[in-house]
């Protein structure tokens, strides 16, 4: 872990790893899509189950991304790891995108299935709140002039949010049973047929690889961006016209 602590080493290491990540992501994604389209149609939902193969991985990634941010935040606050806040900063927009996809695909799945664009069931509502929390992180980051100064406040916010997630989940579940609609919405039934499980798993792996590739690339960009900023600040402070 410590050898990644040096940004320069990270840049060198990531440059060699990144092409493989992209290739792996593309490859597994292709396999996953083929498997998904060749899987049998669900007896209940027909072809619409195809949406499940992108909705569920998106939701998983949305949550995994927040876990990455929370872990990075611990790294920032406890160990002052130099790359920790770069990791968190890079991951936030990616997580927000996956959360957005989970919401939109969930909505597009819900309309043909249950007739409404939006369903206030426990899961979708929790994901909506997660989306708002991502936006909050990004908003707090952008409110600071110096991104390095934002690192620790955002880390605190991320961890407060992380601690809150089980509480929110519990509350929303409780709220949902209170307002129980006539039928119970289960996106993935208690048992998924193996013929659907495999494509789902492969798509999940594909999304994860894609996230890793984008994340590493975004971290590289963030490191470069901070170098550029530092150099511009230095340039601005030293270019004093000679009298």
């Amino acid at each position: 872990m410590l050898e990644f602590a040096n940004p320069t080493r990270f840049m060198a290491l990531s440059r060699s790893v990144l092409p493989w990540l992209w290739a792996a992501a593309a490859g597994v994604l292709a396999i996953g899509l083929v498997l998904a389209f060749r899987a049998p149609a669900d007896y209940q939902q027909g072809l619409t189950v195809l949406i499940m193969y992108i909705h569920v991985p998106s939701a998983w990634l949305a949550m995994m991304c927040y876990a990455v941010i929370a872990t990075s935040s611990v790294g920032t606050l406890v160990w002052r790891h130099p790359l920790a806040d770069v990791s968190a900063r890079a991951a936030a927009p990616i997580g927000a995108c996956f959360t957005f996809l989970a919401l939109v695909t969930g909505s597009l799945w819900g309309k043909p299935m249950w007739g409404t664009w939006w369903v206030w069931d426990a899961r979708l509502t929790s994901v909506l709140l997660l989306f708002l929390m991502y936006l909050g992180l990004i908003a707090l980051w952008r409110a600071f002039d110096d991104p390095a100064r934002a690192a620790r406040p955002v880390a605190i916010l991320a961890l407060v949010g992380f601690v809150n997630i089980p509480i929110i989940k519990f509350s929303v579940d409780w709220w949902n049973t209170l307002h129980q609609p006539a039928s119970v919405f289960r996106f993935d039934g208690p048992t998924i047929d193996p013929s659907m499980l495999w494509p789902l798993m492969v798509m999940a792996v594909a999304f994860t690889l894609l996230f890793l590739a984008i994340h590493v690339a975004a971290m590289r960009n963030e490191i470069l961006r901070r170098r550029v900023r530092a150099m511009r600040v230095k340039a601005a402070s030293t270019l004093v016209p000679a009298e």
């Binding site: 027909g46 072809l47 619409t48 195809l50 949406i51 992108i54 909705h55 998106s58 927009p93 990616i94 995108c97 957005f100 996809l101 939109v104 695909t105 597009l108 799945w109 309309k111 043909p112 894609l210 984008i214 690339a217 975004a218 590289r220 960009n221 470069l224 961006r225 550029v228």
Partner: peptide, 30 residues
Amino acid sequence: HIGFIAAAYAITAIVLAGLVAWVIVDGRIQ
């Protein structure tokens, strides 16, 4: 339902492609 499926896949493709594009373009800018 084909419309919904197509829309779901399309928007996923657009968002993910957008992310990838952002990461690449931002890298070039930096």
